[in-house]
Simulated scan of single mutants.
Amino acid sequence: MLLGIHHAAIICSDYQKSKHFYVEVLGLKVLAEHFREVRNSYKLDLLLPDNCQIELFSFNAPPPRPSYPEACGLRHLAFRVESINVIIDHLHAHQIEVEPVRTDEYTGKLFTFFSDPDGLPIELYQC
């Protein structure tokens, strides 16, 4: 029935800052950008190399995301990477803090976390 994940939707508090983060820092490709005048907000469609998408929404004064302690709902966004150390070096070059690398006790794969501009936890998982 289900074929895969088509997209994940993210609401940001500062559209320009988040757009820069996802496009310039993480390197996602812009598919479309729309200003929705009725809502006074943007919708940015971003593409990953595997054709999954991220929809980045801006809304006026969205409530902060409860992260610590973790709340029910989506826990984090995880990206597959070829080399976790290359991505970590890239993030450090952009002054983005990254948690220490850990090993998944079940798969033996390396992973780590960092946050987007609004504190959304993002995982890097080396495949």
Results as ranks from 00 to 15, higher is better:
Met1Asp: 07
Leu2Cys: 04
Leu2Gln: 10
Ile5Tyr: 07
His6Ser: 10
His6Asn: 14
His7Leu: 02
His7Asp: 03
His7Phe: 03
His7Tyr: 04
Ala8Thr: 13
Ala8Glu: 00
Ala9Phe: 00
Ala9Thr: 15
Ile10Tyr: 00
Ile10Phe: 00
Ile11Asp: 00
Cys12Ala: 08
Ser13Phe: 05
Asp14Pro: 02
Tyr15Met: 05
Gln16Asn: 13
Gln16Thr: 09
Lys17Gly: 01
Lys17Glu: 12
Ser18Lys: 04
Ser18Glu: 04
Lys19Ile: 02
Phe21Ile: 11
Tyr22Ala: 08
Tyr22Lys: 09
Tyr22Ser: 07
Val23Arg: 13
Glu24Phe: 01
Glu24Ile: 01
Leu26Gly: 05
Gly27Glu: 08
Gly27Tyr: 08
Leu28Glu: 07
Lys29His: 11
Val30Thr: 14
Val30Trp: 02
Ala32Thr: 08
Ala32Val: 03
Glu33Met: 09
His34Pro: 03
His34Asn: 11
His34Thr: 14
Phe35Gln: 00
Glu37Thr: 12
Glu37Lys: 15
Val38Thr: 13
Arg39Thr: 09
Asn40Gln: 14
Asn40Phe: 02
Lys43Ile: 14
Leu44Asp: 10
Leu44Ala: 09
Asp45Tyr: 13
Leu46Gly: 01
Leu48Asn: 12
Leu48Thr: 15
Pro49Asn: 02
Pro49Lys: 00
Asp50Lys: 07
Asp50Ile: 04
Asn51Lys: 14
Cys52Ala: 12
Cys52Asn: 15
Gln53Trp: 02
Ile54Tyr: 03
Ile54Met: 07
Leu56Pro: 11
Leu56Arg: 07
Ser58Asn: 09
Ser58Val: 10
Asn60Ala: 13
Asn60Gly: 02
Asn60Trp: 05
Ala61Ile: 09
Pro62Trp: 08
Pro64Asp: 07
Pro64Glu: 10
Pro64Gln: 09
Pro64Phe: 06
Arg65His: 03
Ser67Thr: 15
Pro69Gly: 09
Pro69Asp: 08
Ala71His: 14
Cys72Met: 12
Gly73Ile: 04
Leu74Met: 15
Arg75Glu: 06
Arg75Met: 01
Arg75Val: 02
His76Gln: 07
His76Asn: 09
Ala78Gly: 15
Phe79Glu: 06
Arg80Ile: 10
Val81Trp: 01
Val81Met: 01
Val81Tyr: 01
Ser83Ala: 12
Ser83Leu: 06
Ile84His: 06
Asn85Lys: 13
Ile88Lys: 11
His90Cys: 05
His90Ile: 04
His90Leu: 12
Leu91Gly: 02
Leu91Val: 00
Ala93Gly: 02
His94Tyr: 15
Ile96Met: 05
Ile96Cys: 06
Glu97Asp: 12
Glu99Ile: 04
Pro100Asn: 12
Arg102Phe: 02
Arg102Glu: 12
Arg102His: 08
Thr103Ser: 09
Tyr106Gly: 02
Tyr106Val: 07
Tyr106Asn: 11
Thr107Asn: 07
Thr107Glu: 11
Thr107His: 08
Gly108Phe: 13
Gly108Ile: 13
Lys109Asp: 06
Leu110Trp: 08
Phe111Ala: 07
Phe111Arg: 11
Thr112Glu: 03
Phe113Ala: 01
Phe114His: 06
Phe114Pro: 06
Asp116Val: 00
Asp118Asn: 12
Gly119Cys: 11
Gly119Asp: 07
Gly119Lys: 12
Leu120Ser: 00
Leu120Asn: 03
Leu120His: 00
Glu123Pro: 05
Glu123His: 05
Leu124Pro: 06
Leu124Lys: 04
Tyr125Arg: 05
Tyr125Val: 03
Gln126Ala: 02
Gln126Ser: 02
